[in-house]
C-alpha cells in the first residue's frame, strides 16, 4: 500500500478585513494526515473545526497558509479531475437536465460527445437512477439530487473521491439508504475516498479509519481504526462493537473541543 494523499503540517489562517478592523482566524493548525490507496477515510469533527476547510484545501479550491498537500507526490496547485467532489448541497445546475449535469463535468475534461453519453448512462446506472437522464434537478427529491451529485463525481473517473457532508441535508431514512448505497459502491469500485461528516454513526459504518478533529484551532486529535469486514449491512449498527467505537469517537470529540464551547 502506498500513500496517495499526504497532508503535511498544514495550517490555514483566514484574515477577514471589514473596513478598518482585521480579524485572523486559525481554521487549521499543524494537520498531518496520510491516506492510502483504496482506503476509505472519514474525517469527523464538531462544527467550526475546519474539516470542510481541509477538504477545500485537498480539492485545491483554496491554499494552505503553511505546510504542503501532496497528491501522489505532487503538490496540489488547483482543482483537478483526479479528485471527484460531492458537496453538502447537490450543487446541480438547475437549467440542465440530470444527464447534462453529469456531462458538465465531462465537458470540462473535453471528453467527446459520444463518449460522454455512454459514461452518463453508466454512472446513472451505478447510482440507481437510470431513466432519469431527461429530468431537471428541480423535479427530483433531495436524495435523488445527491445521487446525481455522486454520479457526477464518479463520471470523471477520479483517482479519489472527496465527500463533504454529502448526506447532511437529507432526512434520516434517506441518509441510511444512501449510506448503504455508498458502501456498496465503494466495494465495487474500490476508490480512495475521503468523507467529511459530523455523524459518528456514518463515520463508523462507512470508513476504514476515522480521523477525529478538534476545534480552535482545527487539528487532528485522534485516529480510530474501524476493524469491521465488508460487506457491512444495517445490522452491524446494532452490535456492541459498533456502539463501543461510537462511544470512543464521542469521547475523542469531547476532548477535542475547547472548554469555552459548551
Amino acid at each position: 500500500m502506498t500513500s496517495i494523499l499526504s497532508v503535511r503540517d498544514v495550517s490555514k489562517t483566514f484574515t477577514v478585513r471589514k473596513s478598518r478592523t482585521q480579524t485572523s482566524t486559525h481554521a487549521l493548525a499543524g494537520v498531518d494526515l496520510e491516506v492510502e490507496e483504496g482506503e476509505f477515510v472519514a474525517i469527523i469533527g464538531a462544527s467550526g473545526c475546519g474539516k470542510s476547510t481541509l477538504l477545500r484545501l485537498i480539492d485545491g479550491l483554496d491554499f494552505p497558509t503553511t505546510g504542503q498537500i501532496l497528491l501522489r507526490g505532487q503538490e496540489v496547485t488547483g482543482p483537478g479531475a483526479d479528485r471527484g467532489v460531492v458537496f453538502q448541497q447537490p450543487n446541480l445546475l438547475p437549467w440542465r437536465t440530470v444527464g447534462r449535469n453529469i456531462q458538465f463535468a465531462l465537458e470540462c475534461l473535453r471528453v467527446d460527445r459520444a463518449q460522454r453519453e455512454g459514461i452518463v448512462r453508466d454512472v446513472l446506472q451505478l447510482v440507481g437512477l437510470d431513466g432519469f437522464e431527461q429530468h431537471y434537478p428541480g423535479q427530483l427529491s433531495g436524495g435523488m439530487q445527491q445521487r446525481v451529485g455522486i454520479a457526477r463525481a464518479y463520471a470523471v473517473r477520479p483517482s479519489m473521491l472527496l465527500l463533504d457532508e454529502p448526506f447532511g441535508a437529507l432526512d434520516a431514512q434517506t441518509r441510511v439508504v444512501l449510506q448503504e448505497d455508498l458502501e456498496r459502491l465503494w466495494r465495487t469500485e474500490q476508490k480512495t475516498t475521503v468523507l467529511i461528516t459530523h455523524d459518528m454513526e456514518e463515520a463508523v459504518y462507512l470508513a476504514d479509519r476515522v480521523v477525529v478533529m478538534g476545534s480552535r484551532p482545527g487539528r487532528v486529535v485522534d485516529i480510530v481504526d474501524i476493524p469491521f469486514d465488508r460487506p457491512r449491512d444495517y445490522d452491524l449498527r446494532g452490535t456492541a462493537e459498533f456502539g463501543r467505537l461510537k462511544t470512543r469517537l464521542w469521547h475523542a470529540l469531547q476532548a477535542g473541543m475547547n472548554a469555552d464551547v459548551a
Binding site: F14, T15, V16, G48, K51, S52, T53, F63, T65
Partner: peptide, 25 residues
C-alpha cells in the same frame, strides 16, 4: 459552520481576502 462557509469570491460590502504566505495586501 462559520469558517467553512466563507465564500471564495468577495461579497459586496465586506471584502474577504485570503492571505497566502506573506502577501497580505
Amino acid at each position: 459552520m462559520s469558517l467553512d462557509a466563507v465564500p471564495a469570491t468577495a461579497t459586496p460590502g465586506v471584502s474577504v481576502q485570503y492571505v497566502r504566505g506573506r502577501q497580505a495586501r
